[in-house]
Design a protein around this nucleic acid. Structure first.
Lengths: 336, 336
DNA sequence: ATGAAGTTTGACACCGGTGTCATAATGTCG
DNA sequence: CGACATTATGACACCGGTGTCAAACTTCAT
């Protein structure tokens, strides 16, 4: 099977390669007859333009890179699914790049990524969307990027996030309205800006409702199930045991639920448990977890869509958006 | 900031671009002095070779595509993680392409993928690794590919799978050894070859131990949590209720566990539940699920590694491997 | 010193497209 | 019918690298 290039098509059709290129790109100034003829040859020879050659000429790859480091698998798949939706809409593809590094090594690693594979743009998800270093680097390299779920203030780059603080506030208020006063809290990974936001939401709700904040009720997690299990032990060992636990994500909440169940502590009768994110696991376990639905797919979808728009026209206004988080009540929380 | 190309480097260093190219690729026949000089200019000018140009010249993109359609998010992330490990080892990158299509549309979609982004190879995961149509297509297109977890017999293409039948056999035998005789079974998605394999393993174990196979004990799932919930209802409504349930994957098993718990059926006292895959959820819930550990990452890692090796040297022997699956017992199964 | 063999280097075509610009063909109008 | 505007087409350079091959330079044995 011989390779079919623009040259062979041109020769076969009896026109110049530039004319073939015109037809290929739906450019004007091609007579209908010629266009017909060339299109027929496309079919006949089963011609596929070479994306690499095109990329070289136009200095574009039609590939977006997605950078992440998140212990929550479901978060990642949701990010990917939103990103892919936007990519496919514009005939882009998605290259994934998990990365555990920080600081200089991170920059080096991203640099390497950009060296081995020319990307038209990058979507940053937490914690990278909060890395000022990385953002500065990308700016100097002139790589378009969009930030997802970042709390960083930078109105020169695309950002789509949800209102973490508001969500945590609502959830805490929900617990309070059920009569809970000793509400334990499990923090997320310190590198993620959401961690602080959710924590403030929790604190502010307590404050608003005149409940004293107690440090011993707060455990340090890092969004992983495992860290949730550790924190769960801490919290369930407290005397007196809190009547409610608010974990910064659903995985950690699931870990609390598991330990509670193991210890025959009834949920929600003896203790209420709530999470954050509305990850699949929140409804895959019994009792289902009360949580805050964060529109992860939608955030990423919008971010990537705007990124691609910006790539095609760098002069458009920088998109910045805050989406609402929503309380979802399930069986894991009940009145005290 | 001016663009640094091989030409500017050559000019600056006072050598030809070919010599620069030689240094770039660590080719022999460059005098140490020249090499030094050029390397210094690389540093000085912060030169990054353009991967697209290189791709055009060498007809390579250093990108592997990963094709999947699997309702289990954790399966996908495990696949990705194995694939990425192999990719990064060889300085390749991974492009992901979920795809829900079948038949002609699938072919068309993959064709489109190959048109918009030149890939050096493709990893096929279930159910695509079992699609004869797709495999034939890729062969005609001369795209290297590797199959993961495919039961298809084709010794001309790379294949890494685990022994599903054996695993299911062992798990069933485990249940039988605990005294269970009425063991319900939830099948997976009919398009996945693993579905049949696991089912045969179940049937063969029953046969071997003189337990009659009963059709009413078998429910049709499709690997999704949702289908597991439907099947769970069917099974738990049976009179008499079976004493054990073997679901073809952990998500469906989790769904059975949830419904059982909701109905205050005690697990494992009243009913034993087992899954397959050893997905994270298997240990994130209580009781933890007895299951079969399938080395998904390892399968994919090996498949991609071999794929890359084959890309660099098409003459090497086609790699075909069957990895062992392993029984993991947790709290969800117990003696009758 | 000479020739043969090996090493180092660069000129140039090429990968498969796109952009620029000149030229050819066609259309319009007085 | 000629002058001019408009549309259609192709020649050619270019994107940024790599492959081929011949020339120039070393090295070394004779």
């Amino acid at each position: 099977m011989k390779k079919v290039t623009i040259n062979s098509v041109a020769e076969y059709a009896g026109v110049s390669k530039k004319t073939v290129s015109r037809v290929l790109n739906n450019e004007p100034n091609v007579s209908p007859a010629t266009r017909e003829k060339v299109l027929k040859v496309f079919k006949e020879l089963d011609y596929k333009p070479n994306p690499i050659a095109r990329g070289l000429a136009r200095n574009k790859s039609f590939i977006i890179g997605c950078l992440y480091d998140n212990p929550s698998k479901s978060y990642i798949t949701r990010v990917q699914s939103g990103a892919l939706e936007a990519c496919h809409k514009f005939n882009y593809n998605l290259l994934i790049h998990p990365c555990e590094l920080r600081g200089d090594e991170l920059i080096e690693n991203v640099d390497q990524l950009l060296t081995t594979s020319r990307l038209d743009g990058l979507v940053l998800t937490p914690p990278f969307s909060d890395s000022q270093e990385l953002i500065d680097f990308l700016k100097t390299q002139n790589i378009p990027f969009a930030r997802v779920a970042s709390a960083l203030e930078d109105d020169t780059s695309i950002s789509v996030r949800s209102n973490d603080e508001q969500g945590a506030y609502e959830l805490t208020e929900h617990l309070i309205s059920l009569g809970h006063k000793e509400i334990a809290f499990i923090k997320g990974h310190p590198d993620h800006s959401a961690t602080e936001k959710r924590f403030s939401g929790y604190q502010n709700a307590l404050l608003k409702h005149g409940i004293e904040y107690e440090e011993k009720l707060v455990a340090e997690g890092n969004f992983s199930y495992h860290s949730g299990a550790d924190s769960a032990k801490e919290i369930l060992d407290l005397e007196p045991m809190p009547t409610a636990v608010f974990a910064s994500n659903d995985y950690m909440a699931a870990a609390v639920l598991k330990l509670a169940t193991q210890r025959r502590i009834r949920v929600p009768e003896d203790i209420s448990i709530a999470g954050f994110d509305n990850a699949p696991i929140a409804r895959h376990i019994w009792p289902g977890l009360t949580t805050i639905a964060q529109p992860v797919e939608e955030m990423t979808r919008q971010a990537v869509e705007q990124l691609i728009l910006q790539i095609s026209d760098p002069s458009i206004e920088v998109y910045q958006k805050v989406l609402e988080a929503k309380l979802i009540t399930r069986e894991s929380t009940a009145a005290k």
